[in-house]
Simulated scan of single mutants.
Amino acid sequence: MSRPPLPPFTEETAIQKVRAAEDGWNTRDPERIALAYSEDSWWRNRSTFVQGREAIIEFLAGKWDRELDYRLIKELWAYTGDVIAVRFAYEYRTAEGQWFRAYGNENWHFDKEGLMTHRHASINDVEIDESDRKFFWDNSGPRPADHPGLSELGL
């Protein structure tokens, strides 16, 4: 199975890879998202360690059971060969109605087929008021092309 764009990355293909990841995560479909990772992909997500597609699916299903109305924006930070670094922010609310904005950085490593083999994510959550939200688009799909990115939002 191949997941273009493939390494070695150029700036253009790294940006495409980042946007594809953002669009995928905004579906909140764990099975679909897991297909972007190698069978034995290894993650560090905050203080949680996950390995393999089945564990990724389970992790993501639990995440979106807790993080409601999730909307994510990713931005390329750096790339070289088969590695991409991104910064990101996402907004979500809890079942109790408290809104959060999570800020973070990820380092990704890809195999020759374009599947992610390693994902290292450092993330911090900040409580926000609903009136402080910045990510507004239909909750059922990807960020529209005309919605500002992180840099344009000053985040």
Rank of each mutant, 00 (worst) to 15 (best):
E130V: 06
Y37D: 02
A89G: 08
R19F: 10
D111I: 03
E130L: 07
D129R: 14
A55C: 06
E127M: 05
R19N: 06
P144T: 07
Y90I: 00
R71H: 12
E12R: 06
E54V: 00
Y70Q: 14
E127Q: 15
F9P: 01
V86K: 02
E152N: 09
F88Y: 13
I123R: 09
N26V: 04
L153Q: 12
A102C: 11
Q51V: 08
F49K: 05
S131F: 08
R119E: 04
F135Y: 07
T27V: 02
Y92M: 01
I73A: 11
R46F: 15
G24M: 11
Y37W: 15
L150M: 12
L150D: 12
A34N: 03
P30N: 04
W42R: 11
D23Y: 12
G62P: 08
I15Q: 14
A55S: 13
S122T: 14
K112W: 09
E127C: 02
F59H: 07
R71S: 09
Y70C: 07
E127R: 10
Y70R: 06
W77F: 11
R53Q: 09
M116T: 13
T27W: 02
I84N: 01
A95H: 15
L76A: 04
R28M: 08
V18C: 03
S131C: 03
R28E: 03
R19V: 05
